[in-house]
Nucleic acid binder design. Structure first.
Lengths: 226, 226
DNA sequence: CGTACTTGTCACAAAACCGTCACAAACCGT
DNA sequence: ACGGTTTGTGACGGTTTTGTGACAAGTACG
């Protein structure tokens, strides 16, 4: 369920990489230029960015520096894609704050390996790690939720919502925080919509004798009790 | 209430936005150009600035950079208003340090939502440190109170009240002080209302064999004994 | 196309909460 | 013991917050 942003202006490469990453189970958002990439990151912080060295509107390193300078995106894992393996380029890339680089042409296998490595390294915060609390188990990789082995069917949004709660059990989250984390920073959504989705989630969980896991904290928000 | 500075040179938009914000209960100060805005911020730091992209004397981004460079105004939440949704502009705006942006034309509803979100996000975190006194434990992060592990259910107000007492045990607090700290500085509430909530709190705590933790100090107020 | 599913929003219902009052009880100095 | 003052308590009405059912728009998919 990891969110990957691919910033690449060459359509053939973009298609190839996106296809492979999707096949590997990642959620891929593509951007053709730096401006689009900034907006995409702004809307939802991806787990990883694949960033092409050459972009039509701005050098990739420039964009990278921009992200590094911003607190919210400072630790965003970035894998740079460089056309040639010129050492100078690589130095510049790492200097700008790239976590890793890959020179074209690269094999699909190598790409996947690097991506996985970066995601794993960047995750003390388990986003690909499955979470298990009480009788509930949620696996982001396979997008499955089970209660004592029995699968529970959830909509994508409900899944993200539940995942968010299970990542920090017993913590109270305000509706604003929930919106930011589950929907994305820049969405324009009614706070009360959270309530509705909480209800739907509760309803589904209740079918598996889990009616008490999500608790209302009046005036504060909701929390997962475990 | 919250003080908002609106920097916008077009009278029609200024009037519209100001009207709506005032109706929403904000205290709005308007500036027609960058120079006036600087003076206004200098005079009183607003809780939020709505900054137009195009100003007669200076670009809005320029003004924003000026603020960001100054310690006093560095963390001032700024919501930029851009005329067109040109991605280029948005990038520049965020680059200059805008906290959010809004493209004209925008709905009143959306404006309010963004303003509210920014103000809420800017609010300093409430104390998240948990307090433990005797058999009682209060954790603001999870909004839970427990007596030897047993959860105690409290209303939001009771929670804040208890938290206040536990932060300074064995301290006598007058009703006025309690009102200021728990209800807020300038509320118009009967002093005796404190008594009622103390009673309710005591009642709940009594169920957990904690009937003696809140003591009455005749003529002085109440105190938490620990 | 049509169908099933997802998602955001609304309007109303239900529940919880809060402030206040009136009166009872406790306290204090004399 | 007494009058005045302070505090405790039960009850009540109004307000705020949350739950819920319904609906419409959008999406995916055959």
């Amino acid at each position: 369920m990891s969110h990957i942003l691919l910033v690449e202006d060459e359509p053939s490469i973009q298609a190839l990489v996106a296809l492979n990453l999707r096949k590997a189970g990642y959620d891929v958002v593509a951007a053709l230029d730096a401006a689009t990439a900034v907006i995409a990151v702004d809307a939802q912080l991806p787990a990883l960015v694949l960033l092409d060295w050459m972009l039509p509107d701005r050098p990739g390193t420039d964009l990278l520096r921009h992200w590094r300078a911003n607190a919210r995106t400072a630790k965003l894992p970035v894998l740079m894609l460089t056309a040639r393996s010129e050492e100078e380029d690589i130095v510049t890339a790492l200097d700008a704050g790239a976590d890793d680089y890959l020179t074209k042409p690269f094999s699909v296998k190598e790409l996947n390996a690097r991506v996985q490595a970066l995601l794993r390294r960047a995750k003390p915060d388990a986003t690909t790690q499955s979470v298990e609390i009480g009788r509930l188990r949620l696996d982001p990789l396979t997008a499955q939720v089970t209660a004592e082995g029995e699968p529970i069917k959830l909509s994508p949004l409900e899944f993200r919502l539940l995942h968010f709660f299970m990542k920090t059990p017993n913590h109270v989250h305000s509706r604003i925080r929930i919106l930011d984390a589950v929907w994305g920073d820049h969405v324009f959504i009614e706070e009360r919509t959270v309530d509705v989705h909480i209800r739907r989630l509760r309803e589904t969980l209740a079918k598996h004798r889990l009616e008490t896991v999500i608790e209302t904290v009046r005036g504060g928000g909701y929390s997962f009790v475990g």
